[in-house]
Amino acid sequence: MSIIKLDYKALWDGICNWSRKVGRATARPVLLLWYVMSSSETPRKDKLAIFASLAYLVFPIDILDAKRLPVIGWLDEIVSVAVMIQKMAKYITPEMQCKVDALLDKWFPEYAQYEIIEA
């Protein structure tokens, strides 16, 4: 049995840099996936799937090159995150959502004052 060593710090750094470039709305599902992956309640196989999806999104490795295929080049990444959000939604807790919103408020304070969220 081989042990896979995942570099969570490099992934987090990549997510932070990527998120600040793409903006609040686009970063939110990615950060939710990060918190799901970080949870002790999430099964290991799901954590590995999330890690792979997030790494594919934020690191400069592409199956479909966005520079050669501008629209299609982003589809593989969008689909990867969308599928992960759909599959992992059952693990997203209100606490995770609050952590993500607080982090986004810190990174994008200009947007925080305009958002009104009512239950």
Rank of each mutant, 00 (worst) to 15 (best):
L54I: 00
V100M: 08
A52N: 11
R68E: 10
A49V: 07
L104Y: 08
L75W: 02
I61V: 06
D46K: 06
A102E: 15
P94M: 01
K87T: 04
D65H: 00
L75T: 01
D76Y: 01
F51Q: 10
C98D: 14
Q97T: 03
I63E: 06
L104E: 08
Y91R: 09
D65L: 01
V100L: 08
D62P: 08
I92M: 13
L48A: 13
P70R: 05
E77N: 15
L57G: 03
Q86G: 12
F51P: 08
D46S: 04
L75K: 09
L69K: 01
K90R: 15
P60L: 02
L64Q: 11
M88F: 03
M88L: 05
A55T: 05
I78V: 05
P94A: 02
L48M: 04
D101A: 12
S53D: 07
V100C: 15
P94D: 03
L64P: 03
L57Q: 05
L104P: 08
I50E: 07
M96S: 09
L104W: 14
M96D: 12
T93K: 09
I85R: 15
V100N: 10
D76W: 01
I50H: 11
I61Y: 08
C98N: 04
Y56G: 08
K87M: 13
A102K: 15
A89Q: 08
E95N: 06
V100G: 10
A49K: 13
I78D: 11
F59T: 02
D62M: 09
I72D: 04
A89H: 13
K47V: 03
P70Y: 02
I92H: 11
A66V: 05
P60E: 02
D62C: 14
I63T: 06
Y56V: 01
A55D: 13
I61T: 13
L69R: 00
A82S: 15
A55R: 08
L54W: 00
M84P: 05
V81D: 04
A102F: 15
M84F: 02
I92P: 12
L57R: 06
D105V: 00
K99S: 11
V100W: 07
A89E: 14
L57A: 06
P60K: 00
E95A: 14
V79Q: 04
V100T: 10
E95T: 11
A82W: 03
K90S: 14
V83C: 07
L69W: 00
W74F: 07
I92V: 15
A52W: 00
W74S: 05
L75P: 04
I78T: 02
Q86T: 08
A102H: 12
R68N: 15
A82F: 11
P70F: 02
L69F: 02
I50N: 07
Q97A: 13
W74G: 13
F51A: 04
L103N: 09
P94T: 00
I63P: 03
K99G: 06
P70T: 01
L103G: 14
K67Q: 05
V71K: 11
K99W: 06
A102N: 14
E77T: 13
M96I: 09
I63L: 11
D76N: 14
V100Q: 09
P60F: 00
D62G: 10
L57E: 05
D101P: 15
I72W: 05
M88V: 05
L69Y: 01
I50K: 05
A52F: 01
A55Q: 10
L104V: 13
V81K: 02
V81M: 11
